[in-house]
Design a protein around this nucleic acid. Structure first.
Lengths: 215, 215
DNA sequence: CGCATAGTTGAGCTATTTCAACATCAGTGG
DNA sequence: CCACTGATGTTGAAATAGCTCAACTATGCG
């Protein structure tokens, strides 16, 4: 259970507390493509991603808008846990994943006993709010080229490397564009000498220009 | 300070607790159009809307996307308080407003002393998250007609009345459309006999059909 | 009453989508 | 190691939803 310490929410937890979480949770494996939750389920679990990758998204009319992609150590599905209503979105494993599940009422119990965790959770959710705020900004205030540019920039900032892994279709679903449009915008950025592209990677050649385009 | 009790976050507070909040806060008035905070400010306040109306929004290139409109008793600007970073958006009074301001560190102090408030805040933020999730869905998965329809529907559900106040330009900024487009979509809904329109009000004539169109 | 603000309508424009065809890649089994 | 398959990405041409611009009307406010 040591991996819990890598999650901001649980960093600084005592052995005792970790032991407690172990007691109230169970682990489950999901294959790539498996649905973890959907909007018709009541949100009475809380998920901690231990291994793998998960996307949380909305759908309508065959379209799909990714809200957030979660990477290895992370928690998700927490919002529904606090309202006690249905999940507001879908979650699906995009890689084989191992996920720790904590029943809602047990987690609430834990929170009561340990307000420190509650405080940390507040800051996790605050960051989440800010993230969504940025997603909204990206979706409604930017054109396709800026969207793609800022997507690349974000990955760069996350990884702190000029060469980033890139999937056109993933990006398109996060950005609210079609894969064709993303492909064309990449072409434009390449023409401008701002990026280079090879199979499933992108390398930033002109960071300044990229920043300008991203707004 | 009795109005605090109307805010979910503070409902069920003891006189003692209310007294404490009174001590750590101060009140400020804003005229219609005045900016309350902007993204270049550090988020070390917490706002409680006592009277009036406030819009929180993002801007870029002269465009504006409303994230949420807050009505009389509500708290806002809380996300930044927990990250300690800058506000992620703008806030502006859209009516003359009276706002209670609580300095960040004092509020955090209060939270420590009173974990019950923390728990409530968690559920407020959870609802906020779900709201933003819905905004994203509306922005990226729906066409103009559905956006307008679901906007009307939402107001209807909030007020529980078939006749709702409606401002074309407000709606357009919340929906990420131009006022012209909103106006045209209203026209279409009117043609279909789904709504009726008079000056600044809309009356729903066919709720079922409206629901269909809103998805 | 008059001015500023908000809403409407039409015509043309443009960014993005759609559709279709093709190319490339990664993994699988022979 | 190659051939096959399904998934992923690319490119072009045509369609379209929503935007822009502009002119006009209605509304509310001092």
């Amino acid at each position: 259970m040591e991996f819990l310490k890598e999650i901001p929410l649980f960093s600084g937890l005592s052995e005792n507390q970790i032991e407690r979480i172990k007691k109230i949770s169970y682990s489950k494996n999901y294959l790539k493509g498996e649905v973890i939750f959907n909007p018709s389920e009541k949100g009475d679990h809380f998920f901690i991603l231990r291994k793998g990758k998960v996307k949380v998204f909305k759908t309508a009319k065959g379209k799909e808008q990714i809200i957030k992609v979660f990477d290895k150590p992370a928690l998700f599905g927490e919002a529904a846990s606090f309202t006690g209503k249905n999940f507001p979105a879908w979650a699906e494993a995009i890689e084989d994943s191992e996920i720790l599940i904590i029943p809602r009422h047990r987690f609430l119990q834990l929170l009561k006993e340990d307000p420190e965790i509650g405080m940390k959770l507040l800051s996790v959710m605050a960051q989440r709010l800010i993230h969504l705020t940025n997603v909204i900004e990206n979706l409604s205030l930017k054109n396709a080229l800026s969207k793609v540019a800022s997507y690349i920039l974000r990955k760069y900032e996350e990884l702190e490397e000029k060469e980033i892994p890139f999937s056109t279709s993933m990006a398109s679903m996060e950005l609210g564009l079609t894969k064709e449009t993303v492909s064309r915008m990449l072409g434009k950025l390449k023409e401008l000498g701002i990026i280079e592209k090879s199979k499933s990677r992108i390398r930033i050649k002109n960071l300044e220009a990229l920043r300008d385009i991203a707004f």
